[in-house]
Design a protein around this nucleic acid. Sequence first.
DNA 1: CAAAAATGTGAGTGATTAATCACTTTTTAT
DNA 2: ATAAAAAGTGATTAATCACTCACATTTTTG
Lengths: 194, 194
Amino acid sequence: MGKPHQQRKQEIIQSTLALAAELGVKKVTTQAIADRVGVAQATIFRHFKTRDAIFAEAIAWLASQLFLVLSDCFQSQQDADQRLQRLVHRQLQFISEHKGLPRLLFSDRLHLESPALKQAVQTIMQRYTREVAELIEEGIDRGHFRQDLDAMQSAGFITALIQGLVMRWSIFNFDFDLEQEAKPLWAFIDSALR
Amino acid sequence: MGKPHQQRKQEIIQSTLALAAELGVKKVTTQAIADRVGVAQATIFRHFKTRDAIFAEAIAWLASQLFLVLSDCFQSQQDADQRLQRLVHRQLQFISEHKGLPRLLFSDRLHLESPALKQAVQTIMQRYTREVAELIEEGIDRGHFRQDLDAMQSAGFITALIQGLVMRWSIFNFDFDLEQEAKPLWAFIDSALR
DNA sequence: CAAAAATGTGAGTGATTAATCACTTTTTAT
DNA sequence: ATAAAAAGTGATTAATCACTCACATTTTTG
């Protein structure tokens, strides 16, 4: 039964994310993770030093997947406005498929218990906003967006808009289709930028 | 030392909010509240049946205060766009002065442990969005905003925008001035609606 | 003033849970 | 094959925390 380290680690991370999505971060106990993976609770600590270390790696995994999905939106083989529209859609799609992400983002653990986790999220958010800002900058230069825009500020508002939307989705028990919001959301963003 | 019930209840609620702002919801234990109020931990339960009941009343108090502060924005003695601008500013100001609000909003306790709390927040958010939608509706009718806007949808995006901004503020340790964001935020909203 | 009601408290209880540890089994490397 | 390393486990620990209870004090009320 003793699987190789990396494989078991991935199982633990994926189980953690699945449980976070289903039950919320608070209920993701090391026991619950162990049960889902099919090992004893103590075994979890063979693979991660602490519980927070699991969350940290889960967040890192989500970030890497997200940037992978968005990567072609950040490369200019198309007009900036088209790519930004695609980015909005892909982002909502990704979150729809990974409900664990908003759960982690909205958890107290992240917000106050673990400065390290918070730091990780800060870095990811900054990188994300910076990349969106570059995209907008390009759109301004090419005349797709208004000339008087502050790219960094606009990028900040766009990420805020998406996060706020996701938060409402989370508060309302994921009971509306997030992806369906992509179209009107883009209409709103587009008219703010043009 | 035995103070009247309502007075003690208010002390407990205010202490809870202060602690939530400073330390985050997780660390607002009944012991911490009791220490701050200056009574024994057991005394807390003379005034509230459960810990969640404290949070519930704290949220209700915040909501009543918020709607009080925003009340004149919802009454039409002025152009809708001016009132909406004022609403955005007042809202950010209010949250700046009540950091406990985002802490409660982002806590997993609210999100998953207590359906009753979540329900309360849902109701408040719906009322808020509805009132903003009415404001926008009026602005559309009077020609201050675009004719093709969906008022309810726009109101949803505006609240999402504010909430997302507040979330970033929370994740970044309240380390930028939220009120200062009011001006550029309004510029963004205004250009999206006009 | 006296009874009743409200407020307050110290000392618990029980439940939860991350982390440890001594020991066993399995896998990997030489 | 065999030694070393890795993976796994049951039992336990230590800490935390909401909540209870019997009893004391204060406040309110008739």
